[in-house]
Nucleic acid binder design. Structure first.
Lengths: 194, 194
DNA sequence: GCTTGATCTGAACAGGTGTTCAGTTAATCT
DNA sequence: AGATTAACTGAACACCTGTTCAGATCAAGC
């Protein structure tokens, strides 16, 4: 046996990435074998190497793709005039974007240590760029007298951590709708900095 | 060769747990082999089995030990009268306790998925018990009119997430002292709920 | 209809995995 | 000093790991 009926690169390729994303999120990068991913796709392990040079690239491409999407989506958002409105837009954007991609968000935080040093540096730089946007909003708002923040850097990290926490409990179709969640978190963020 | 000079159960035992904690935190449970742990201790892999029935127990004992310490330490804290003072005490206790054990905190959040279902349920119950204390404070304060919280359960998780975030950046001997960090976070928590 | 190239299989590679255990040594007890 | 036992080694077990590749098969282009 060899090539199977209906096999197509543009079908198998995405399925490999989907299977890897799902399995990495469930069990962790190190705990998932190439044979498990292959089984999920319905293919032999060797066939995966038509779509990725190695296992490490599979992880790295998922993380870089996620960060690229994040920065691109953020760049397309309208930027309001006042610091307060900017902070609201950022908070709600962050929650919405993250709730739409729970698995990618999850591995983007959990699997950083399984990246090679070079790959880690790349992802870290993208993350720094994103979080820097929040820090800029806070600093501008602080200088304009709109916010009361003791330490801009730490406040940035505290807000990001709080917003990311939403992924630990939110399940779509649950008790609260997305706008309700956005409102609750924005309420807490706003009060924490004013 | 066999028993080595100076070998002692009460010395090697703790060293096995320390090595496991350190390596699990660095590379993740699944990525660390028993032979790596043994090498760190300065012993052959087989000798580890004098101190743990298997690798899974090594992880579970670390997590359960951490949660036990957390609940015990919390139970020994004085409980203030007012909800606001209780929230302050909880926030500062949480930060202090977590900053003193960065590695144990780290694996307690990262390695939950590598526990067997039974072990996971045990740890989850202990965590629920701890977080329930914060939820009780928030509910009492809400009913007494001291706090303004839209959703008690979500606020609990948001605060925990924010406080846990401190472990992602704090390094002892850094720019800020422990009391300063406590003050900054308590300031944000207080404002977020009042 | 035939050729060409993309797609996949199945086996193989060298090395790593958790765990067990007979045998050996060092510390302790009498 | 001699016996006992706790502590450890080193080899072995069966199996899993990421990765490679010759060969088989299907889809597409002429």
């Amino acid at each position: 046996m060899a090539r199977t009926a209906g096999s197509h690169s543009d079908i198998t390729g995405p399925r490999v990435r989907e299977a890897a994303l799902s399995l990495f999120a469930q069990h962790g990068y190190a705990a998932v074998s190439m044979r498990q991913i292959a089984k999920d796709v319905g293919v032999q392990a060797g066939a995966l190497y038509n779509y990725t040079p190695d296992k490490q690239s599979l992880l790295f491409d998922l993380l870089r793709g996620h960060m690229d999407e994040l920065l691109t989506a953020r760049a397309q958002e309208r930027v309001p005039d006042t610091p307060l409105a900017q902070l609201e837009a950022f908070s709600k954007f962050h929650i919405r974007f993250h709730l739409e991609r729970p698995l990618a968000v999850f591995i983007s935080y959990m699997e950083l240590r399984n990246l090679t040093p070079e790959n880690f540096a790349t992802i870290e730089e993208l993350r720094r760029r994103y979080e820097g946007q929040l820090e800029t909003i806070l600093r501008d708002g602080h200088e304009a007298g709109a916010f009361h923040v003791v330490d801009t850097k730490i406040t940035t990290l505290a807000i990001i951590a709080m917003l990311n926490g939403v992924n630990t409990w939110y399940r779509s179709g649950g008790r609260l709708s997305l706008p309700e969640v956005e409102a609750i978190y924005w309420d807490m963020v706003r009060k924490a900095v004013t």
